[in-house]
Design a protein around this nucleic acid. Sequence first.
DNA 1: CGCAAAACATAACACACGTTCTGTACATTC
DNA 2: GAATGTACAGAACGTGTGTTATGTTTTGCG
Lengths: 208, 208
Amino acid sequence: MARAVDHAERREIFAAAALRVIMREGVAGLTVRAVAAEAGFTTGALTHYFNSKDQLLIEASELSARLVRERMERAERVRPALEAVRRVVALALPLTAETRGYWRIWLAYWERSSYDDEVARVMRLRYDEWRGRLERVLRRAQSEAAVAPEVDAREAAEALIALVDGIGVQVVLGVSRISAARQRAMFDAWLDKVRSGRAPTHGLRRSA
Amino acid sequence: MARAVDHAERREIFAAAALRVIMREGVAGLTVRAVAAEAGFTTGALTHYFNSKDQLLIEASELSARLVRERMERAERVRPALEAVRRVVALALPLTAETRGYWRIWLAYWERSSYDDEVARVMRLRYDEWRGRLERVLRRAQSEAAVAPEVDAREAAEALIALVDGIGVQVVLGVSRISAARQRAMFDAWLDKVRSGRAPTHGLRRSA
DNA sequence: CGCAAAACATAACACACGTTCTGTACATTC
DNA sequence: GAATGTACAGAACGTGTGTTATGTTTTGCG
């Protein structure tokens, strides 16, 4: 036997390269040759770790999820809960260049999932996780009386996802330069609808 | 000379076929052979009317816009203006199977526009038209005192577009079965924020 | 009619793609 | 230090692609 390299690590290198290719040229530009070159290898190396392009596509998607998950979980634990809602959503909004890159990737996966069942299945898992996270933190905010008790947490989470997705799309398309401030304002307007009067979270402003 | 067929009509036949192919298999499945077969012709016929695939892609996009524009313009003229807002948005929401088909097409064009400059240019025009329409009808509603005067029509239009896009994405992905009723409820909740108190449009409920 | 141009069909072309196959350097185990 | 399987490189293969080139039918006009 002979093994000097970490198998999982190499796979992640290729997955990360795939994400960069998608950011630059879309899923249509995602070829095994392009990914291999981006990673600094040849197709022979890539096929040694992935025996199909579909596997690579899925693994890249899972990498992108893993990259944000840790930060999301940290933001979710913040107290008070209403501030956690703010931080979690702030991580999802395309406020930074990095997040805008992720939005381009997600848009690509959305398109593909509309006719690729395997990708659709993975996307569904991602959304369940995302909705669950929002639902959880909204419920916590309710228990702290920061969100009105008559609000249905599940429906609120779905509405919030729709808002965030809508903002993400417009920013990626560049159809209207929605500034970071405007993104926050749109989110705050939504949050105001949902909040109960006696929330003690006033004056808490986050950085960019 | 010899011409028995309407040139523009034939082009539209191919453009419509392209839309159907995109609906069924995404932009990745949009091949000149597939479109020609879908239209009941061969590639020779297609190239007689379009000398590049990109031209076909753009023309198909313009067809999809034209198909909804007429209905949009009709809905926009409805009075009172607040009801026009409702109808225009209802046309955009993925309430029917037909509209859901269009959403799949638009999603495909979004993805492509993130790395194809020509498609991005066309998409930008579409969005300007769409935002302009919403802005116009919202302003009219303001002049009828159905929307609060302090609302910025442009910003409100952008927020509304984000909401509609977000709903559209979730429905196309099928990540959460947002019913037609829920879609309307989400829109109504948004509209309530924007309305002034003395709007005379209560009790007016549209059909599905 | 005759003929020229339009409206197609069909085939060929060059290329890029995912996949597979073959070859080779190298680290590890005996 | 040979043996052996890993980690790659690089080329080849078959297929599907957009485009182009070459036919064949159809249609209007003098």
